[in-house]
Design a protein around this nucleic acid. Structure first.
Lengths: 241, 241
DNA sequence: TAGATTGTTAATCGATTAACAATC
DNA sequence: TAGATTGTTAATCGATTAACAATC
């Protein structure tokens, strides 16, 4: 692991590689080449190798990468190899979706406590948890020791919440509120904005499609749809995210 | 509007500028300079001017930008100046959060129909809507004419759903399922991955904080917390996102 | 007018892609 | 060994930043 700064896009792609590798392991695949990763992820083989090169050497020339070993390496890099307790602030619809999100557990993320300032909600059950008073944030986190928090409150409350989180020892925040948080330099923030995503989609509707429909055969360039039975698919979708 | 390709980061920032401008208008501010935008958004004045330059000239040298006019221009660029019906697929927790998301309306996004394949859910109310059978997707959208759709189903069902959406005339997809969708070239996809976001946060916990705590006074570099009364704040937070 | 601020150009920075010697 | 595929270097591409003439 050299001391070069790792580009953020590289870190984001690491999570994608991991997903592909986990699928491959599930399917019993022992080894993958960078070309295989390209096919499965849509990210170029060169990009994949360059991304990994920031962290070390993980493959064998002429052979490829051991699925199992690479999974372990990426999990270690991303710190997914240990339990990661998180605080959730905001017991609304979005909070409910996050508490119920099934995929967190597989990556050892766990929402350890949920907070709100609405006295009607405090004390009520919320998934497996009980909604705590936001005023008890620091006190509760003294027990939990979470370093990651999720902000799922309205924009006008988010800055106040962020300051309380920092005071409680949080060092990384996932912010769903549409506002720019001001935090000290040792706290890392990532913003998720549904409106921003939709706005970018919306912009692209205005653009004349550069690619015409002619020539589109319905053939997918690679990785055809998995041959799942209708029954299986029905079962799979039955519980939406 | 020149024919230069607009960088995606520029489009993403446009949504941020708009948010700041709407706040400013709300506060009665008539005019803003690029420096003001920098202070309010955290995005540099040079970046802001460069971003706008892809679309035309909107300011007056020596004066700045008319809040109202710039809002209108950005809304037109992002197509937020008209009603935008959307389809939602997946009536789970996340779908519920999206249907209940209050900020969509302000930007003229509207979830016009929700679909699921779980026959237990079909026909049930979901927010203001009734959950429709996914099999009726094309039929229903023939009425609605939505061009944007949101996928909020599990990963293993997402590709199948995407194909049905494309068949129903959808041209832009916001995908919450952790999988790479294969779609024809005239369909624009954006992915939102909670796990990816958390993984990047998690990585940063491992890094030794380059910025020490020393020298942090709690003073925020700019835009101090709004002076809202406690009562006001309590009211504000009472309904989480 | 003098001061402020724009829009744009040029310089810098950073990320992606292509190519290939090393090596399994 | 011959073929395949890695890790890395150099070339390309694209986005951000800085600087400044134009202009209100």
């Amino acid at each position: 692991m050299t001391e070069t700064r790792v580009p953020t896009p590289t870190l984001e792609r690491l999570a994608t590689y991991l997903r592909v590798l986990l699928d491959a392991r599930e399917a019993g695949v022992q080894t993958l080449s960078s070309r295989d990763i390209e096919r499965l992820s849509g990210i170029s083989a060169a990009q994949f190798r360059k991304d990994l090169s920031y962290f070390g050497e993980f493959g064998k020339p002429g052979v490829g990468y051991s699925t199992q070993q690479l999974i372990e390496c990426i999990e270690r890099i991303l710190r997914l190899d240990r339990e990661q307790p998180m605080l959730l602030v905001g017991a609304g619809n979005l909070g409910a979706a996050l508490v119920g999100y099934p995929n967190f557990r597989a990556h050892r993320f766990r929402i350890a406590a949920v907070f709100d300032n609405n006295f009607v909600k405090i004390g009520r059950p919320f998934g497996d948890l009980i909604i705590e008073d936001i005023a008890r944030l620091k006190e509760v986190n003294a027990q939990i020791g979470a370093q990651i928090a999720i902000i799922a409150v309205p924009a006008n409350a988010a800055q106040e919440v962020a300051e309380q989180l920092v005071d409680a020892g949080i060092r990384a925040i996932l912010n769903f509120a549409p506002t720019s948080l001001k935090v000290p330099p040792w706290v890392y923030v990532r913003n998720v904005s549904f409106l921003q995503e939709l706005a970018v989609l919306s912009y692209h509707l205005a653009q004349e499609p550069k690619h015409s429909r002619d020539g589109w055969t319905g053939e997918l360039p690679s990785e055809p749809t998995r041959p799942a039975s209708l029954a299986a698919r029905v079962k799979e979708t039955s519980d939406a995210i």
